[in-house]
Design a protein around this nucleic acid. Structure first.
Lengths: 202, 202
DNA sequence: GCCTAAGTGGACAGCGTGTCCACTTGCCTT
DNA sequence: AAGGCAAGTGGACACGCTGTCCACTTAGGC
């Protein structure tokens, strides 16, 4: 397992004033509510400012756009999954050296299942954070990419770089929403992904 | 091969006045040029109107938004591919009944190759037409979806509906651009897709 | 309590959208 | 050949969102 780019752990922040902290909390709470109750793409910075009871300037001071707010909300959940991938028990984690570990296909299936669950739980945030091309720029995406590339490598396939992105494509939040709106359950989506994972890597 | 929803063949249009036809041609030409020379997402309806030498009202009369224009430009190429899928020789087409035909995995790989070539040739249009969630609503997407679902069915896998969308995900124009910008060649991308196709369906 | 820098909020200019409608022009009729 | 009318045209308009800027306020160390 080579160098996985970890999502920055919110390192030693320069101290934050009490009113600033209060407003940050208000902003995040208001944004989460708004994302959940309408199409995240239609939520404007102005809406969030108004709902949080702060001015536009205050909002822009911390977050350059809607996506940054959604990402901040999503980060926590994604870091939890990253932990499990790095240090959790098989099939999700790598397993002890010398101990038993799962096949690449099983591990990819387990990862897919976790991601599907994460999307199921926080789809509005994912849609707010990673719509379209922005997805590929996030730190989290880089992490998933490195993880999947490693699994591809272990499976002995050519060109893990290229395949990793292609294997992550079915996890695009927009596709997940599309499939849910077609009436497919989260389980059914996860089952499809599991099939894909096993057949591709095992 | 059941009921594939064909893209409407531009049926008997109500006759179009000569000046209207001239302006339509101007609009399409101007839009294609603009899409090619900058990020399609940044091209505005106003830009297109100005470049085509027509007023905004004229533009909106025919096309509700940028995506509709890009789709009109793409349609021609997509219909050509649809023809080949339905009636072309193997491995792309189904082959004669009783004659030789390719395996589902080979056929999916051939389809992937054609789509990658189409993206390579017309990426700006694809980005203009199918950015984000809009992709799933187009008639063309429905066609690809039905085609891939049929291949999945022939391969004997469960739930072709769900898998079809997931197998189409790596063809998202934004992903293609992302991979190209990473320095991957079209051939390398196509090779990855071929691996995916064969391992999944064969 | 005072001082200072961090924090705040609303005003502002700019841009893109989509609509609307008075005018123009192609084309069919007689 | 002329007339009429519906299709077509283009630009003005109102609206909403963005991102910046800056004069004011407040927290918290000294």
């Amino acid at each position: 397992m080579s160098e996985l780019p970890l999502l920055p752990q919110a390192g030693s922040a320069p101290p934050e004033r009490a009113d600033a902290a209060r407003n940050r909390a208000r902003i995040l709470a208001a944004a989460e509510r708004l994302f959940a109750e309408r199409d995240p793409a239609s939520v404007t910075m102005e809406d969030i400012a108004k709902a949080a009871g702060v001015g536009r300037g205050t909002l822009y001071r911390r977050y350059p756009d809607r996506a940054a707010i959604a990402r901040a909300l999503l980060d926590e959940h994604e870091r939890a999954l990253q932990e499990k991938l790095l240090r959790g028990a098989p099939p999700l984690g790598p397993g002890e050296p010398g101990g038993r570990s799962a096949s690449p296909g099983e591990r990819l299936a387990a990862f897919y299942a976790e991601m599907a669950a994460l999307l199921e739980a926080h789809l509005p945030l994912a849609l707010g954070a990673e719509t379209g091309a922005a997805r590929y720029g996030t730190g989290a995406y880089g992490f998933w990419r490195a993880h999947v590339a490693q699994l591809v490598r272990e499976a002995g396939l050519d060109d893990p770089q290229t395949l990793a992105d292609q294997l992550l494509a079915p996890l695009a939040p927009e596709l997940f929403r599309h499939q849910r709106e077609l009436g497919l359950s989260g389980e059914r989506i996860a089952a499809g992904l599991a099939t894909l994972a096993r057949r591709t890597l095992d």
